[in-house]
């Protein structure tokens, strides 16, 4: 039996402390939009990032052991590397296939490609991840001073879309992942050419919604951005269909999509700085933050983009 310290009972003074703590939390929540908090969060991320890297380096083997109890370390390493290679090749194949379709297409897609001959990317490292399932986001070490703007598109090194910038701090930015429950991306099947909206589900998978009843989307098909609504460039891989469910009586099939790149092992990403999203007010594509502020397309990012040497111009383009 434990003999408690003074203050163990939830009595008057403890209730007072409880009220003070709750009031302080409410106060910070209400005034969380003040610039002071951005600066504070920026500084905290700068301090915590090395600590997180150290914790990850030290604890990662333990985490892996705990996760794969029984010891399949070598197998897991090999599997991780094969998955990464597979993701890269799949994205590359999808890109080539998409280019082939574009070249044969007479609807003017070629003009779009010619209008954007070289996409510019800025490299960034993931420094923190959100801790709960209700908000899927990662923090990257690029911020406003580097030319990062809200709604910019973030891509995995393999070429598939990871998410988009949802908030920008002076030296860091938060990327809302495709799997976030609030994420909606206009998408289409690469083979079926059926258009819908790819919605996050809060876990590692997504769901393709607003499909026509006779969509014809099949398991294994690559899902690409459709470019509708102007938030994302057209023809960049988003994921692969992992399951198509539903009966004939359903209004639309339930299409589940898995990411091409593993979000858990992702450490570096690319920000597509050459694409400026245009906020076309189409249902389901405007994030709450943008809708609330009435913010239009972000300013051209080139102002500070050339400040850091890590910026890279990658070969190939996304139309």
């Amino acid at each position: 039996m434990i003999r408690r310290k003074p203050g163990a009972a939830f009595g008057g003074r403890t209730a007072l402390w409880f009220t003070i703590a709750a009031g302080f939390a409410f106060f910070t929540l209400i005034f969380s939009n003040l610039p002071f908090f951005s600066v504070f969060q920026d500084a905290a991320l700068a301090v915590a990032a090395p600590a997180q890297r150290a914790v990850r380096a030290v604890a990662s083997p333990m985490g892996d052991f705990a996760e794969h109890f029984g010891g399949f370390g070598a197998l897991k390493t090999e599997n991780d590397s094969l998955q990464a290679e597979n993701a890269r090749l799949t994205a590359e194949t999808a890109r080539f296939k998409e280019k082939e379709i574009a070249l044969n297409d007479l609807t003017g897609l070629l003009d779009v490609k010619l209008a954007r001959p070289n996409d510019k990317f800025m490299a960034a490292t993931i420094v923190a991840r959100s801790t709960d399932r209700y908000e899927r986001a990662v923090a990257i070490n690029r911020g406003e001073r580097d030319g990062v703007r809200k709604e910019m598109v973030v891509i995995a090194p393999a070429g598939s879309i990871v998410g988009r910038i949802s908030s920008v701090l002076p030296d860091f930015a938060w990327v809302t992942l495709l799997s976030d429950p609030g994420s909606n991306v206009p998408a289409m099947g690469q083979d079926s050419r059926v258009e819908g909206v790819l919605a996050g589900r809060g876990d590692d998978s997504m769901r393709l919604e607003l499909l026509p009843r006779d969509g014809g989307v099949k398991t294994g098909e690559i899902i690409m951005t459709s470019g509708l609504a102007g938030g994302f460039p057209r023809g960049i891989p988003l994921g692969r269909v992992i399951d198509v469910a539903g009966s004939d009586q359903d209004l639309a099939p339930a299409v589940y999509v898995g990411p091409l790149a593993s979000m858990r092992n992702l450490e570096n990403v690319l920000i597509l700085v050459s694409f400026v999203p245009s906020a076309v007010p189409v249902f389901g594509t405007i994030s709450p933050a943008t809708a609330g502020s009435g913010q239009a397309a972000p300013a051209a990012p080139d102002a500070g983009a050339a400040k850091r040497p890590a910026e890279a111009v990658l070969p190939g383009s996304s139309r």
């Binding site: 703590a21 709750a22 302080f24 939390a25 409410f26 905290a44 923190a128 986001a137 809302t176």
Partner: peptide, 18 residues
């Protein structure tokens, strides 16, 4: 600490933990 190092607004996790 959670709120500062994640995408939450500061105070959200404190209110949930109290």
């Amino acid at each position: 600490t959670v709120d500062i190092l994640s995408a939450h607004a500061p105070g959200v996790t404190v209110l949930a933990l109290l």
